[in-house]
């Protein structure tokens, strides 16, 4: 095992543990903070893969903006005791854990026993430029549809949040 593997294992462990924490914490604010840690772990994985731009975007958008939004949303709508705000059902907790464990073992076995093809190409000099060419070139349909998707989500969120009762 070389240093790069070790770094990967540590960051991956932090990411996964933090993700489990999101589900496990009883206080939803702690869950949100745990989510930030998980996002940062993913960013670290991007950095290790030398996708610096993606790593920065991940920190800026997810660890920064999205988590602040989540915490604001919690602050605005939470109306119960914080310590009881993210309770899980005792019975389903164990079943869920068991199924998660089985899925992990099954997929782990499949992934572990696969001989993975290795990419022979080298890293592009200008990864941001290459990304931009892809997004507005071959993937332009997906790119534009994703923009519409965000619009739909925003309008939908406003409509659902405003609630019924206002009829004109």
């Amino acid at each position: 095992m070389n240093l790069s593997d070790l770094v990967f294992i540590v960051t991956a462990l932090i990411t996964v543990t933090a993700a489990v924490g999101v589900v496990g914490f009883k206080n939803i604010v702690h869950s949100a903070l745990s989510l930030v840690l998980s996002f940062l772990g993913v960013a670290a994985l991007y950095f290790q893969l030398q996708a610096g731009f993606l790593g920065l975007v991940q920190i800026l958008v997810y660890a920064g903006a999205v988590s602040v939004l989540i915490i604001f949303a919690i602050m605005l709508v939470m109306d119960k005791d914080p310590d009881e705000s993210n309770r899980s059902h005792a019975k389903q907790k164990y079943w869920g854990g068991l199924i998660a464990l089985l899925v992990t073992l099954g997929l782990g076995a499949a992934i572990g026993s696969t001989i993975w093809p290795q990419s022979s190409g080298s890293l592009p000099e200008d990864s941001v430029g290459a990304l931009a060419t892809l997004l507005l070139g071959d993937y332009v349909v997906a790119f534009e549809v994703a923009a519409l998707l965000l619009l739909v989500a925003v309008v939908g969120a406003i409509i659902l949040a405003k609630g019924a009762g206002e009829h004109d």
Binding site: L148, V152, G156
Partner: peptide, 13 residues
């Protein structure tokens, strides 16, 4: 990926 984005647009709506 394009397929997935189309699917998400449909299901989110």
């Amino acid at each position: 990926i394009t397929l997935y984005i189309g699917l998400e647009l449909m299901t989110i709506s």
